[in-house]
Design a protein around this nucleic acid. Structure first.
Lengths: 145, 145
DNA sequence: TATTGTTATACTCTATAACTATA
DNA sequence: TATAGTTATAGAGTATAACAATA
């Protein structure tokens, strides 16, 4: 039996993997801070962002969040109590409730989106070719194409 | 007053920002799943990973996690109950308790590290030049250099 | 007095299971 | 009977404040 116990990673790849971990941590930190500045938790801000792109039935919100539907009830309850979201009945199926952002909810979602400068700012300093290359790498990591 | 309300983002940059968000979500998902397969939460796995690199006083764990010291008490309590971590007195200062992984804790930390193939696998398909370029981009995003 | 770690408390997020209204 | 949403419950992470032991 050899000492090898997993696929070997060269120092460069190892460094890149570690950098990705740091980017992930930084992204979450900045996202949560931006949400907290407006009195929202990370989960609430994420749901508000989803709904500002497209109103969704409760169950579909859960699918996007990859969590149980019962959790969405509480998150939307709190957004609704803040006047940022409303539950609207679905015409076709009376069981379904569609979560729709209010005007204030849409406004806040836009503010939150714009305050996430972490990624945008450094990207602006890249050439178009560099950004294309970066996009290609991210796509490969996500299994796109 | 013009309609412009924030720095403009070209479609390519916008797409890259969105891809980064997806990578972040995917990274967290895979990390938490790997932890759950071994009966740990994400926070517990993260602390165990930290300690496997270097034993740390409770307060310093909180600083690395960017959370309040009182939270670390509970996380380390659960790791200790699982036999993965021990609290050891500090020789120089009797107020300090150093969290040290046990042999089993170090073993599990290594397994968790190796199961995070998400980033490593696609990186292996890149040329050295591409990886260097990717590293440079990540560093700029983190403000390194 | 100041610092380290803990306890107590309250809130949020999470999964599970049971429930209701509707299909 | 199946599905959408909710409620009830329990565990975990989080911040705040107050506390004990030590410096």
């Amino acid at each position: 039996m050899t000492a090898t116990r997993s696929p070997r990673m060269d120092p460069l790849t190892l460094e890149v993997v570690e950098l990705i971990g740091e980017v992930v941590a930084r992204y979450h930190q900045e996202f949560d801070e931006a949400a907290a500045e407006h009195g929202l938790t990370g989960a609430q801000a994420r749901v508000l962002g989803l709904l500002s792109l497209e109103p969704l039935p409760m169950r579909q919100v859960a699918q996007r969040l990859k969590c149980e539907p019962s959790n969405v009830t509480g998150i939307v309850d709190r957004l609704e109590a803040r006047g940022l979201v409303e539950r609207q009945p679905s015409p076709g199926d009376r069981r379904v409730k569609v979560a729709v952002p209010t005007a204030e909810g849409r406004r806040l979602a836009r503010v939150l989106r714009e305050s996430l400068d972490f990624a945008r700012e450094p990207l602006a300093g890249l050439s178009r070719e560099e950004r294309v290359a970066f996009r290609g790498m991210l796509r490969r990591m996500l299994g796109i194409d």
